[in-house]
Design a protein around this nucleic acid. Structure first.
Lengths: 355, 355
DNA sequence: CTGTTAGCGCTTTCAT
DNA sequence: ATGAAAGCGCTAACAG
């Protein structure tokens, strides 16, 4: 982990590269600009930050110098001075999952035009790594943190929020420097299963999420409630555990067949496992929705282009990202922590049909 | 765009939050540690960086103080001093596209254990915005930049590489501080179409990428070459322009039907548009691959779970990310710029069959 | 309105 | 082996 970060490269007009010999075009500093414009550094700073009135002639001179020298203030220096970095940290669990990416898009849009940039790190679904990453972000003096599907406890979040404001998904929290958004997973799952029941299905299998996952358990609860409410007994043989990934959905489906269960519909705890289940069905020559109905959970961007398009419970992933970001920015600016995201909703597409 | 970034929050044991009154636990500094351990700041720094020998007793004292005060060096200060930030900048074009995400996963893995973090920005397929973003990264003193599918010209890349090393995909470049990786799109497309021809197809439609896109044009060229090589005339009516998105694939497919073209196979310039085409086919009740064969390009993670799984040209997206990162790190460390990525390859799955 | 001065927190000669 | 002091590039009092 040795690193040499003192080298700066400068390319000559001939395309060769050589080590900067400090005489020439190292990134110009505010001091350089001041000299070139014949004013004091403070004046340049004032113009840059609009901190005070500056006479027009000096302003012109400075602006000219800035343009000519292609000057941009060194953010590390600014940050050191002001104690902030104009950066927010985002903690995801999997950097290449459509689930997080859609939220990241919301974050990106929420940051647009604010001057803030984001550094994204992944906790890889692991509390320790997550803690580690958050510490890293804090050492980098991020001005706030957005924690997506964090594995750490509420106390940990609260503790970190003593250093920088945090907004987190998947938990209910509301202090001056910590805010949480929680989706009603139980209700979402209820909606999904209720939809199936209304369509006349009675034997409904469930491909769950990982057993140690809160959201997953809430979805299981919703599945059970919908069944009970309709007077249908919950059959443990119809519930098989998955891990939210495609492969597990496929495996789960196959396990259901192997044990010769009877069912006319399947509710998968998330879209990804629904994709896997769909493939297992295809392989067996079972038609969807003609022979079996299928419902997912999340409404990933790809779910409107599966074959056939997937009926699912829509999570406002993009909105969550955008709203969380706006809330965080608000806290950073000393305003009250608040924000609300739209509720889950059933999106009926083409994988479910009347029994 | 007003921002107040000087506030620091501290949470009391009762869970309330109040503004830091500067007396208490603001993040501790190296100076604090030095005082607490009864040594000079330089000694602490030396221990932190392994920069020089330090007596064992002092070392113990310092380590204890660090642990007790939960100290972590302020990266902005370190950065200002050393002129680097232990951060690399990644420029993507779309933060929530499976294409980039898979590459980002490679980057993430490539950075693992190096102490570097990454800030990811999006150029949104727009040269101006991209230039803007790169400037931003440079102002943040990132130690290097990875440019994915950049829209800016090679000269611009070379110019920027004068400030910080850059590795870029989609272009052939090789100077001391700039490295490019270029995939052979023409060859990939050739592979795809050749596969179809070998299967006995003669009327092969092509859903292209955006006309102004280099990669897209190369893929078109490969399509044409395969046809010509087999003595099949290129029929302009069988080529319809898309924009790499699902919706455009669907539209393109429908346009092909509307104009009553005859064809038995379709080659889509990327997987996303193949998904769209697939849906259009499904809607028309046309079976894949029984009635029509379909080939994509990219091999996105989702493509092994489409119904049926998609035959496609595999781009080593993950490897590109990992290898680009390693190459960049090598350049940053003053080593020679090098690295090579695996070639494109045909992945035969279940959307193609003998005519 | 504008320049001078003193740091932000850390690293790094330079002495000792 | 260790401390004192200077300074990275910028901003924010404080004088004028």
């Amino acid at each position: 982990m040795v690193t040499f970060c003192e080298k700066v490269f400068i390319t000559t007009s001939t395309g060769n590269t050589l080590a900067d010999t400090s005489h020439s075009s190292g990134p110009s500093t505010l001091m350089d600009v001041a000299r070139q414009a014949g004013v004091s550094p403070s004046t340049v700073s004032r113009i840059l930050n609009g901190t005070a009135k500056v006479s027009d002639d000096k302003r012109q001179a400075v602006l000219a110098a800035i343009a000519q020298m292609n000057f941009a203030p060194n953010q590390m220096a600014q940050g050191l001075k002001k104690g902030c970095s104009m950066t927010i940290g985002i903690v995801v669990q999997d950097i290449s999952s459509p689930f997080f990416d859609e939220t990241l898009r919301g974050v990106d849009d929420g940051l647009k035009g604010t001057g803030y940039a984001s550094v994204i790190v992944s906790g890889h679904w692991n509390a320790e790594e997550e803690t580690d990453r958050i510490r890293l972000l804090l050492a980098r003096k991020v001005d706030g943190i957005i924690l997506l599907s964090g594995r750490i406890g509420d106390e940990a979040v609260l503790a970190f929020s003593g250093q920088r404001p945090i907004v987190s998904t998947g938990r209910a929290l509301h202090t001056r420097s910590a805010l949480g958004f929680k989706m009603d997973n139980e209700y979402g799952a209820y909606l999904a299963v209720h939809h199936l029941i209304e369509l006349g299905h009675r034997e409904i299998a469930f491909i769950s999420g990982p057993a140690n996952n809160i959201d997953a358990n809430e979805r299981l609860a919703g599945y059970q409630r919908a069944l009970q409410e309709a007077g249908i007994a919950v059959d443990p043989n119809l519930i098989v555990e998955g891990n939210y990934h495609e492969a597990s959905g496929m495996l789960a489906m196959n396990r259901l067949f192997d044990t010769h269960q009877q069912f006319t519909a399947v509710f998968a705890a998330n879209d990804l496992s629904a994709y896997g289940a769909r493939l297992a069905l295809y392989r067996k020559g079972i038609r969807v929705p003609d022979d079996i109905s299928l419902v997912g959970f999340d409404d990933l961007p790809g779910s409107s282009y599966t074959t056939p398009p997937l009926t699912t419970i829509r999570q406002p992933l993009y909105d969550i990202g955008r709203i969380a970001t706006q809330a965080l920015l608000r806290i950073i600016n000393g305003e009250e922590a608040r924000g609300e995201v739209p509720p889950l909703e059933l999106i009926v597409r083409e994988t479910t049909r009347r029994r």
